[in-house]
Structures are given as structure tokens and as C-alpha cells.
Simulated scan of single mutants.
Amino acid sequence: MIEANVLLLFFATSLLLALSPGPDNLFVLAQAAQQGQKAGLLVTLGLCGGLVVHTTAVTFGLAAVFAASAAAFTALKFAGAAYLLFLAWQAFRAGAQTGPSGTVDRLSPGKLLRRGVIMNVTNPKVSIFFLAFLPQFVDPRRGPLAVQFLLLGGLFIVATILVFGAISILAGALGDRLRQSARAQLLLNRLAGTIFAGLALKLATARRF
């Protein structure tokens, strides 16, 4: 089994990585501000579902396919970019829906979870990152590599939930206040759309290395 000090170092590094600005935490921030704290938390769970897929891919060598195949990498990244552009279009066309309590139409939990999963799974850079990052903390002398990879992936997911959960709560609380105003809500929708479009552009122009 991996030594405790190595696990602690990995977990601390994972927290710092989750805190650093990136596509996933910006996506959570935009969704929480636009839809509320619960939405941010559900998207976070969806993203973590995607991380399970990436962890499994690294464990069984599937991530190497995207690192080696330009066609597979390109197809997946453009699928992800197209999905993000679709979300941007939805956000830009959304109007203000304030009532006496500043409520808005909420997406269903299933849709929010799917958004998180699709956002994460269709980003091949995550698989390649895991392929480069996780092996630095495994040791063949410490037991089966598959078990070590799964353990590290689980710790990374825990760190993601902690950081992204905090982002969801803070952004959701701010969004709740802003949604009291129709003008502020329209601004939130435009901001979310801009973030989604920017993430789509970043993903579409991403390179394997």
C-alpha cells in the first residue's frame, strides 16, 4: 500500500490543483451562480463521475490511446467544445425569471449531473493529465498498481468535492442575491454564457502535449 506521507502529499497537491483556476471549477462557479448552490453541488458530483471514468481509463491504460492518437483526441475535444457552445447558446438566450422571491426555473438534478459528467469526460486533457500525474505517486513494490491508481483517483475526487463544494456554496449564495434583480440575473446569464464559450474555445484549441 502507498505510504501515508505519499498519500498526504498527493492529497495536498490535489487540493492546490482543484483551487487553481481551470475549466472545471469555472464551470462549477458559473452554474452555481446562475442556478444556485444545489446546482453547483450536483454539477460537482457529475464532474467527479467523469473523474471516475478518467481514473478507470488510466488504471486500465485507455488514457494512453488519447495520448497517442491524434484522431481520438481531436474527436473528443471537439465533441466537448460543441457541447459547451450549446450551453453558452442556452445561457445567452435565457431571460430573467424573477418572482417575489427571486426564484428561477431550475434544471433537473439529472440534467445538472449529466452536464458535469459530459463536461469532464469530453475533455481529453484530463485523461492525459491523470496519465502523467498519478504514476508519480505509485510504487510497484507497494502492491498492485491498479489498486494504487484507484486509491489516488479516489483521493483526487475527495479533494475536488471539498474545493468545488466550497465554490458552489459561495457562488450560489452570491447568485441568490443577484437573482433578486432582473437586470443582475440577465448579467449572470450573459456571464455564464461567456464562460461556457471561453471554455469551448480553450478546449477546441487544446493540444495533446
Rank of each mutant, 00 (worst) to 15 (best):
A182R: 13
V6T: 14
A132Y: 01
L7T: 03
A91N: 03
C48K: 01
V65C: 07
A192I: 02
L150E: 01
T160M: 10
N25P: 08
K38F: 03
A57S: 13
A132L: 15
G154C: 12
L85F: 14
G40K: 15
A67V: 05
Q97E: 15
R106L: 09
L76M: 15
H54G: 13
V53Y: 14
A39E: 15
F209V: 03
A57C: 05
G46M: 06
N5K: 07
A30V: 05
P23S: 03
F86K: 07
V163T: 15
A159W: 03
A68R: 13
P135M: 09
L7R: 08
P140V: 08
F156N: 09
V52T: 11
P135G: 08
A132N: 07
G110W: 06
G22A: 03
T13A: 14
N5Y: 04
I195Q: 01
P100M: 11
Q136L: 07
N5S: 14
I128M: 05
L16S: 10
V52N: 07
L62K: 08
V138S: 04
G36N: 00
V43P: 08
V121G: 06
A57H: 13
P144A: 09
A182F: 07
L16H: 02
P100C: 00
F66K: 11
L152H: 01
F133T: 11
Q37V: 08
S181V: 06
M119Y: 04
P23H: 06
P124N: 06
A75S: 04
P144I: 08
D105S: 13
A72Y: 01
L42D: 04
F164V: 04
L19K: 02
F11E: 01
A57E: 01
L42W: 00
T55C: 05
V117T: 09
F86L: 14
V126P: 00
I167P: 00
G46S: 03
I157C: 14
A33Q: 09
L145K: 05
L17G: 12
A71N: 01
P135L: 01
Q185Y: 09
S14M: 12
A33W: 13
P124C: 08
L152T: 11
N120C: 06
F130V: 12
V6K: 14
S14I: 13
L8T: 15
K202R: 04
F10A: 03
Q35S: 12
L42K: 00
V65K: 01
V104I: 12
G153W: 08
L47A: 13
L17P: 10
L51S: 00
N5T: 11
L188W: 00
Y83V: 03
A88S: 07
K125N: 14
L150M: 11
M1S: 08
T160H: 06
A79S: 10
V6L: 07
L186P: 01
T122G: 02
L187Y: 07
T98N: 08
G175A: 01
G116D: 05
G198E: 03
L201K: 00
A79K: 06
L151S: 05
F137I: 00
